[in-house]
Amino acid sequence: MPAVNKVLVLRPASRPVPSAAGTPPIAMPGLRRVRTHDVLSAVTRPHAPSAPLPVGGVDELWTDAAPPASLALVRGAYGDEPLVQVSAVREAVVFARPHPDDADLTRRLSLLQRQAGLSRAAFSRYWEQVHAPLTHCHRHVARYVQNHVLDTEGADAASAGAFDGMAEFEVGDVQGMESDYLTPEGLRMRQDVARFAATVSTYWVRTREWRLPA
């Protein structure tokens, strides 16, 4: 079985909700799975400024193709549609709790830009090895996943204003999640963000998923 590679696509606009579940909005050779997130609302987080670039949606694509070929394939699949960023990522699940029904989960995404002076590798290392353990304060989050950017399509995007990572939260209890931020562990986690992230843009999203035969 070929290794499955993941690509993130940041779109400037949301997609309308389809009238019925049908085929995924993207088609390309080697595509195995598609998950689309459309922004419902932005979240203001006092401990971390947002990036000025508006994002209307994020698509997660799992493909048999490895980067950089996967990036060219994905870019081609979107045709002339304007995109904010197309990046190959490495997915790291930090924790996952059993949950009876995924449909009950509310999903939140955070797009991160690294602090000036940090290389992408240093940002990634800190985020995964130092910050991730602090996120265990999230007792009401069913699943927390980090996506670490490996490669980005287009030199412009790679050099200025690009996102370096995306955190995914699948939340079972939104009020409980907010209360977790107020615990000593939650406070410690929030204070740690500024050590590696310059901006954190956070959104509640509506998520749809398609699995495609190999």
Binding site: V93, V94, F95, A96, R97, P98, H136
Partner: peptide, 10 residues
Amino acid sequence: LATMFAVRMD
């Protein structure tokens, strides 16, 4: 695997 609490550990 989905029925177990899973946590990243190095």
